[in-house]
């Protein structure tokens, strides 16, 4: 019955110093409701990694807390062995599509250029070179023809592709994508998948919050099963099985959930050692 929590990928045993993402004891609570509890996780490099779990399991919160967008109650994050703050330039982020106002007066190219802002730096405007780069990124997601369209005139899938292009423009090594497949058309789904494969082929790591269990084995190499706590993580072929899914999606959780809810109300007092 008991099993171990794997912290390594299938091919190599990555040490923490090499791993794209290493999470230790991560706990996050929103208004005292625990969302994530005691996550320990190390992800392998150069793979497509799905983060799977039911609604409200804390998938998005996981990504946001790693990126420092949500305060962590406890826990440490390291990206390629160093703190996230010092490795920001290696990390790309694709937020949920609903997180922004698509009526905002910018066109697709402007949004993609935002991926270059850090590179451009303070005060300097976006110049021709940057625009060229942004256009290249749009080309990669098949959206070059829409570069000068206002973003509200794009379909949902196209908006999602614009967000992907923005992350691509960052030229990161590790990408976090929050539900990129949610509510997109088939063409976009395929475009995203081929993009993910391309990223993998050049050695990038992609962590993707995913809601469609059916496609996990075909799209991804590695899977993280999450439901408030880490159920399991590892290569799809070993970890993505019925037993783990049952653990993730239902049953036998009531007692633990109850306890976690209560626990989240406690102040942090030093615990005694036995």
């Amino acid at each position: 019955m008991a099993h171990t929590r794997k912290t390594a990928g299938s091919k190599k045993n990555y040490t923490q110093a090499q791993a794209p993402l290493c999470v230790k004891d991560l706990t996050v609570a929103y208004h005292r409701k625990p969302v994530l509890w005691d996550i320990d996780l190390t992800l392998p490099e150069g793979q497509l990694i799905a983060v799977v779990g039911p609604n409200g399991a804390g998938k998005s919160t996981f990504i946001k807390s790693v990126l420092g967008l949500v305060p962590r109650a406890s826990g440490a994050i390291s990206i390629y062995g160093k703190s996230y703050e010092s490795q920001r330039h290696l990390v790309g982020y694709v937020p949920q599509r609903e997180s922004v106002d698509w009526d905002f007066p910018v066109n697709a190219l402007d949004v993609v250029a935002m991926g270059l802002y850090r590179q451009i730096g303070w005060f300097r405007p976006v110049n021709k070179n940057h625009r060229k780069k942004a256009l290249d990124s749009l080309e990669k997601v098949g959206m070059a023809n829409y570069a000068y369209r206002q973003i509200s005139q794009l379909s949902g899938g196209q908006q999602q592709r614009v967000f992907l292009a923005r992350a691509l423009a960052q030229d990161a090594r590790l990408y976090f994508m929050d539900e990129p497949f949610a509510g997109v058309d088939a063409a976009t789904e395929r475009a995203i998948i081929s993009l993910l494969k391309e990223l993998k082929s050049v050695g990038k790591t992609c962590v993707v919050v995913h809601h469609d269990l059916q496609t996990v084995p075909t799209y991804f190499d590695h899977v993280v099963l999450l439901n408030m706590r880490l159920v399991d993580a590892g290569p799809v072929e070993t970890v993505f099985n019925e037993e783990n899914l049952k653990k993730t999606y239902g049953g036998r959780l009531t007692l633990l959930t109850h306890a976690l809810n209560e626990y989240a109300k406690t102040p942090q007092f030093p615990s005694n050692t036995d």
Binding site: A2, L256, A259, E262, S271
Partner: peptide
Amino acid sequence: SYLCNVMGYCNTDVHRHAHQFEHFTDTKL
């Protein structure tokens, strides 16, 4: 016992979690 035998968390720090939960456990639980 629950965390180890039912949830399968034997190797992790069950003591610490049990310690967190014991304060909220009434006789019913």
